[in-house]
């Protein structure tokens, strides 16, 4: 007993000594933890607002709880149902198109053997990634304007007689958003796939050549299986973000005429929460989005667990 006690005492002493020695590390930790609590953890208490009739003067802990009233209002609002559809549709379309483009670009670029061609193309392909969405939409707006290149080409080849106002018709909106996303991110997203292709054993390609496989067959039977793990991991990581993908470009390109297809959950939150000051309704919409996102991640992960070795957690 006495021995144990002294041992414990010595342990304590050692810990204290170690703490003293690490006082700088502990001090920094304390400061950043306080910072983190304020800026990252405190806002989490804001979720409570979704179940309240939040009034700024009463604060979060003084406002009246109203249960699921705000959610009931949301799901009875036809606009919100459309907003959910838009967010999902654009999220899925963007995920599919950008993934296809990135894989395609990586495979095609990998077929170029000469570095002096490959390098400049890759550098050019990164460019749009570094531009802001404002700049991208501004550039896009020029190209799609009545005097822009798209209308110019369409008229020149006789497809149309009069310039199309692309931003005034709902049917063009989703394709424009998908194109904008591909334009901005294809080169950047391809980096990881190019790295995965580089990691494939060259001996496999040589063996296939000797067996008489052509380039397409090599891609199909060697490159595709080679990048499959990367593809699945990225897909898993990105499906959870499907609902997050809809803000900047939709906000910047949206206008009154295409509102029915351009509004997303984030825009709805901004509109109700910030502009109309209905903080509770905005928070409820945001909470719904987060909950669905987490559900999607969990479902995707369990599907992946069942059918392949890839998973996130």
């Amino acid at each position: 007993m006495a021995r144990d006690k002294t041992r414990k005492k010595m342990d304590m002493k050692a810990t204290l000594k170690e703490m003293k020695h690490q006082k700088f590390l502990i001090g920094v930790s304390l400061v950043v933890v306080v910072y983190g609590i304020i800026f990252y953890y405190w806002p989490l208490t804001g979720w409570l607002m979704a179940f309240q009739n939040y009034k700024p003067k009463n604060g979060i802990f003084g406002s009246k709880f109203v249960g699921l009233d705000k959610f009931r209002f949301l799901f009875e609002d036809e606009v919100f149902i459309k907003v959910i559809r838009n967010t999902f549709a654009m999220g899925v379309i963007n995920l599919v198109t950008t993934t296809i483009m990135a894989v395609l670009f990586a495979i095609v670029l990998n077929e170029v053997r000469r570095a002096w061609i490959k390098k400049p193309i890759q550098t050019i392909s990164y460019l749009p990634h570094f531009l802001s969405w404002i700049v991208v939409t501004s550039i896009l707006h020029v190209s799609l304007s009545s005097t822009g290149i798209i209308n110019d080409l369409l008229m020149r080849f006789g497809f149309i007689d009069q310039a199309i106002n692309f931003f005034a018709h709902p049917k063009y909106f989703w394709p424009i958003v998908a194109f904008a996303n591909c334009w901005k991110e294809t080169g950047w997203n391809a980096i990881i796939y190019l790295a995965a292709i580089t990691a494939i054993d060259p001996a496999l390609y040589e063996a296939a050549s000797i067996d008489g496989a052509d380039r397409l067959q090599k891609i199909r039977y060697i490159t595709f299986p080679g990048i499959k793990p990367t593809f699945l991991i990225l897909l898993l990581m990105n499906v959870g973000n499907v609902l997050n993908a809809g803000f900047e470009v939709q906000y910047l390109l949206g206008n009154g005429l295409v509102q029915s297809v351009s509004q997303t959950i984030d825009i709805y939150v901004l509109k109700w929460g910030i502009s109309q000051n209905d903080y509770s309704l905005g928070t409820a919409a945001g909470l719904f989005k987060s909950a669905v996102s987490i559900a999607i991640i969990v479902i995707a992960n369990s599907i992946a667990k069942k059918y392949s070795e890839q998973r996130l957690f």
Binding site: W42, P43, L44, M49, L270, I274, G286
Partner: peptide, 19 residues
């Protein structure tokens, strides 16, 4: 862990705005 968690959960636009 304290910081990794912040990558996955956040308060969302409105609580952050109010903060």
């Amino acid at each position: 862990l304290f910081w990794v968690i912040t990558m996955y959960v956040n308060g969302g636009m409105i609580p952050v705005f109010l903060l």
